[in-house]
Write a protein that binds this DNA or RNA. Structure first.
Lengths: 360, 360
DNA sequence: CTGTTAGCGCTTTCAT
DNA sequence: ATGAAAGCGCTAACAG
């Protein structure tokens, strides 16, 4: 059996309450006593049972998520996962004692986001997770929250200047480089123009992907020229218009890298065009549309990040920060997933059947 | 507040003990009473607090892992992660109440594996996780365990015929297809021979990868011919010898797919050869050697599965089976990771610093 | 500064 | 067939 507070109380010759005070670094213990307790902890190799502690505290962790509204499929998938993480009926035994609430604000609207952050902090949640827009007022809001002792994690798009506690998302520079590397190999030897369609360069993730991609393509040094970036504001209609023009007016178009959302529009343009299609098309995030486009060969690779992992990870990490505990960075690293036609995951999975207890 | 057993006892007009009996499907409750309790559960939307239940039961889950011994770097990495999952000091608040023990048996030795399985089942563990070898005696051992009520999960290499409760590993057929798809694109247009180096075809994962690869290459229909499979027994020295012969005697060698272990040998052969190197080399699993080979351009892509994820997932799933609980299949799906030079994860990460509690 | 005591939500004797 | 009461490991009043 693992040692308990009782064991270390006995070992140190003090009461439970004193042990608890030392363990939780509360004031009001003579330093000599504290040392005795700490020695006992060391000697017995005591490790706190966090589940029991939380039970005793009746502690629940209120965690607020702030996501962009709108019909970006990735964000809607993230929202669905966030709601699921917060539902105890859906994950008994899992991430417990968390009360998740969720707020959506219009995308790309920094003042609205900053206001939502401040409001989210008002009732002292255990942590706040937010898809950031890179703007001074947002960074200021994050700093204000942290000053009030509320841990903040950015999701998907980072805001390092704010000093946020954690970023749950992929390394977007690496993602851009990966896209560039794939494009180069898919285009091996051929010459031509490569287009990039972004959502908005005021999103840090989009800027970083662009930088990484440009870098990888430059290194290629081959006959590939990078066209000026197009911004489609993650809007399928705008992206479609941009892509149509591109296909019509750029006869030597060899590749397209779509690093934001709105791929529905791109896919439509590709499906309808009468011009020869570019040899390599790389997009971001798995959705019904991109999945189908991959299967049909309209798209050659999808770079993705797992929204379920992001939601769970954000909760775990914020909880760890709230409690002053360690977490495992390897487990919380969000992978850059590369999907080809051949390794597409099954479309959608529900919870496993409950395995009835033996006896029924 | 979520309803507790007290609430449902009051609602149903019975005592705590009776509620507990119904909740745990234990005998000795009149069916009329049972119905009353179940109705109360429904009405109040009661969900059991698993953490509290485990605390009350003082339950710990003894889980046994059986892995192949030897110097296969992937298996050693898996072993390291398994040991970490079982160490409460390393993951406070995480996967708690699990006592992991680990046993290694010689690779590819079915009788030894079967014996180890039977032995592992002797003291009634909560679950057993095993890297399977496909052999009748192993399947029989697994069935014996299950007949005794012990859930079994296979890791990495599956054994579906045994009726194991769960498989924690990638879809190896899809992995093979993915390798084939990459190879085709990397070789776009060129003609030549493609070699496959496996470990042993008595490992189901190796056979499945081979099948998927062959299938993808056939579909390609281009000028690529698949050479007869080589078996290197996952041994670097043997793999090196095979690869050297291949490089020397196959002048039109366009690609190599190494789907087992022993890649150290392959990398050495590639580094030392004076012949032109094949245009595309795809291997499995990230290790110091394959990572470096990727960075140096000796290898073009690494397919991988995350050993940390496999270890954690196996424990979560076995625990869910032991308790008759649901789990989230999407969370437990092991991804086929594709690593290129550009999206290599950082080499190694330790636990995050403990965030000291406020007040100290 | 330190100790006693009553619970957190659930399970488990032991009575009835 | 059902209930009362103690206790899992920890925290939180409230006394001293």
């Amino acid at each position: 059996m693992r040692p308990t507070v009782h064991d270390i109380a006995a070992e140190a010759g003090v009461s439970l309450a004193t042990v608890d005070r030392v363990l939780n670094a509360r004031a009001g213990v003579r330093s000599e006593t504290r040392l005795r307790v700490q020695a006992a902890v060391e000697r017995l190799g005591y490790v706190r049972d966090v589940a029991a502690a939380n039970l005793a505290k009746s502690r629940i962790y209120p965690i607020r998520f702030i996501l962009p509204s709108g019909d970006n499929p990735f964000m809607r998938a993230l929202e669905a996962h966030v709601r699921q993480v917060g539902n105890p009926a859906l994950r008994p035994g899992g991430l417990e004692r968390v009360a998740v609430s969720l707020d959506c604000v219009p995308p790309l609207d920094a003042p609205a986001l900053a206001a939502a952050l401040i409001k989210a902090g008002e009732d002292e949640p255990a942590g706040i997770a937010v898809v950031a827009v890179e703007a001074p007022e947002v960074a200021a809001a994050v700093r204000t929250l942290q000053a009030r002792g509320i841990p903040v994690a950015t999701l998907v798009s980072d805001l390092p200047a704010s000093g946020r506690n954690h970023f749950a998302g992929i390394d977007n520079m690496a993602a851009g480089r990966t896209a560039g590397g794939l494009m180069r190999r898919f285009l091996s030897g051929s010459r031509g123009a490569v287009a990039v369609i972004a959502g908005s360069l005021s999103l840090r993730d989009h800027r970083e992907r662009l930088d990484g991609f440009a870098q990888a393509l430059r290194e290629a040094g081959e006959g590939l020229t990078l066209l000026p970036v197009l911004e489609g504001e993650d809007d399928p209609a705008k992206v479609e218009a941009l892509a149509k023009r591109l296909l019509a007016e750029q006869p030597d178009l060899a590749g397209i890298y779509s690093l934001g959302a709105g791929d529905r529009g791109l896919v439509r343009a590709l499906a309808q065009t009468k011009m020869p299609r570019p040899q390599a098309v790389v997009v971001h995030e798995l959705s019904d549309h991109t999945r189908q486009a991959l299967e049909e060969g309209l798209v050659d690779a999808v770079l993705a990040q797992d929204p379920g992992h992001i939601a769970r990870s954000a909760v775990r990490v914020l909880r760890a920060f709230a409690d002053g505990l360690v977490f495992d960075p390897a487990q919380e690293r969000i992978r850059i997933d590369i999907f080809l036609k051949d390794n597409l995951p099954p479309a959608r999975q529900a919870l496993s059947d409950p395995h009835l207890p033996t006896g029924e």
